[in-house]
Design a protein around this nucleic acid. Structure first.
Lengths: 207, 207
DNA sequence: TGATTTACATACCGTCCGATACAAAATAAA
DNA sequence: TTTATTTTGTATCGGACGGTATGTAAATCA
């Protein structure tokens, strides 16, 4: 069901706003919100400033849209990785393996998570950014928690009861991996971190 | 053994450089490196710009000195919290309780860890910042690892062997707490995160 | 007291910042 | 065609930025 869009009235755009937002996010991702200038964004997107303003509003609005996009993407990929009805250990391992790979990619060195890498700095004094960050963390927590709870109900996690606590630890290790990626850590370290927390949550034997 | 300092030659300083560095760090802590202007630093320290340059060099040098100071403080307080020969559970709990309290203080809302909250953003494109951040993480890892290994040798952690992995998880949860503090999380959540990872590392029963 | 040394205070430098005014260009509707 | 509408490119706005030159104040040394 592809919507047949009647061509709008005036001069047509020469670019795809979704692509431009991705390119702008890539620029923010490297240098953060404050240190990324409109010239940088213009160069990254190939758009001149008036076009940027027309498409996204001001710099802050552009950044918030990039944050929201990342938040949505995280939710989708996390849900996909946790959905299958296999062992909790398998599901969690899938999450950490995929995340480690994502955090380590980037043309000029690994860049970790966009939210952790750039929004954390702004969050203290900018309540909009703080709200997106808090929402993202809460969503990741609850995705983990629901999956852990499911494993408990199946009897897959004997002797454990604190699903919410384990979920927050799982999220915290994800955050720690994001930090390490930007600090120059290598893929092996990130993967090992994930494997370790999976062992701690699921037990070292294959529960 | 207080050193009797012969008063130096010219006009004496009217400020304490160590205090000024703390005040500058407080400014960076809220808004990050890029968004903190020299006017902000001047206001925070009460020094005018030429004095700032005389004392610390340029803005980047000032920021690096603030980072190094935090790194040193973290090492000292972590070593102190882990040193006592009590149970690993007790030692780790002490670390997380103290850290949660530190992360939540701050006049205009909680600010988390100075390194995580500000250096992570700069680390991708600034190798000096990245080096300090990587060094700090490595030091925290090894402090945790040494303490966990000690507990293993005493037979205090049966069934576990991956001290390095547990240490990185312990550090990761610390990072996650720093993230949450800036995201607006409350003290109870931070403390719960610490308690959960302590349970996972030491076992839920009091080992 | 005078010379020397160091720190403070004012004022300013050129540059880059985020944001916008304006007109040319490109399309649909009339 | 003409008119209306939207996008694009250029050029620029006032202001904030990091950094510094210059002159003055306060101390020690001779």
């Amino acid at each position: 069901m592809v919507q047949i869009e009647p061509r709008p009235r005036g001069r047509p755009r020469t670019y795809d706003p979704a692509v431009a937002l991705d390119q702008a996010r890539a620029a923010f991702w490297n240098t953060g919100f404050a240190a990324t200038s409109l010239d940088d964004l213009s160069a990254a997107t190939g758009l001149n400033r008036p076009s940027l303003y027309g498409a996204f509003g001001d710099k802050k609005a552009m950044y918030l849209q990039a944050l929201e996009k990342s938040r949505a993407e995280i939710n989708v990929s996390l849900a996909a990785a946790l959905a299958p009805e296999d062992h909790l250990r398998t599901a969690l391992t899938r999450v950490y393996e995929a995340t480690a790979a994502i955090y380590m990619r980037g043309e000029a060195g690994p860049r970790g998570c966009f939210l952790i890498g750039t929004a954390v700095t702004e969050a203290v004094e900018d309540s909009d950014v703080r709200a997106v960050l808090a929402a993202a963390l809460a969503e990741i927590d609850s995705a983990f928690e629901a999956r852990i709870r499911r494993a408990m109900e199946v009897g897959n996690l004997p002797g454990s009861s604190d699903a919410a606590g384990m979920a927050r630890v799982a999220t915290g290790v994800l955050n720690g991996m994001a930090v390490r990626a930007r600090a120059g850590g290598d893929l092996a370290t990130l993967r090992a971190m994930g494997a370790s927390v999976v062992d701690l949550i699921c037990g070292r034997a294959g529960r």
